[in-house]
């Protein structure tokens, strides 16, 4: 217990260094904390879909830079680039050579619109 970090203001070392936790219990705690941060899929209404479609179309046809917000259960993810292809039948689109599913889209805005 001779470690100066134990005296750091606002630290938690006294407890982190002295606790007795089974590795399996720590894993369960971590998994639980992760689950607490799980996000719900955002509902997108018709007006929002129209905005997204317009931004996609401008990016695809005019090669404009676009920022697309994608659903992830645990973190905020964005794709930035130019929409290169749209596969309506397969329900996917391509940015910088990589395919992404339409159903994970939560929003999209053209880079020049984002600046305004």
């Amino acid at each position: 217990m001779g470690d100066s970090k134990k005296l750091t203001a606002g630290g938690n070392w006294l407890w982190e260094d002295s606790r007795m936790m089974l590795p399996e219990h720590k894993l369960a705690q971590n998994e639980h904390q992760r689950e607490l941060r799980r996000r719900e899929r955002k509902h997108i209404d018709e007006a929002e879909w129209a905005d997204i479609a317009m931004a996609f179309s401008a990016s695809l046809q005019l090669h404009k830079l676009i920022t697309i917000r994608m659903f992830d259960p645990f973190e905020e993810t964005r794709i930035e680039g130019v929409v290169e292809r749209v596969d309506q039948f397969g329900g996917r689109f391509m940015v910088d050579g990589e395919w992404f599913p339409f159903h994970d889209i939560e929003g999209a805005v053209l880079a020049d619109m984002e600046d305004n």
């Binding site: 217990m1 001779g2 470690d3 100066s4 134990k6 005296l7 203001a9 606002g10 630290g11 938690n12 070392w13 006294l14 407890w15 982190e16 936790m21 720590k26 705690q29 971590n30 904390q33 607490l36």
Partner: peptide
């Protein structure tokens, strides 16, 4: 001479001086 920290930890525990937070994500 390296026992200063240990002395202070013990002294703080006896006096109830502890500002450590209750930290839910501590195991992460």
């Amino acid at each position: 001479k390296n026992s200063d920290v240990q002395a202070e930890v013990c002294w703080r525990i006896a006096n109830g001086i502890d500002d450590s937070p209750v930290k839910p994500g501590t195991h992460m």
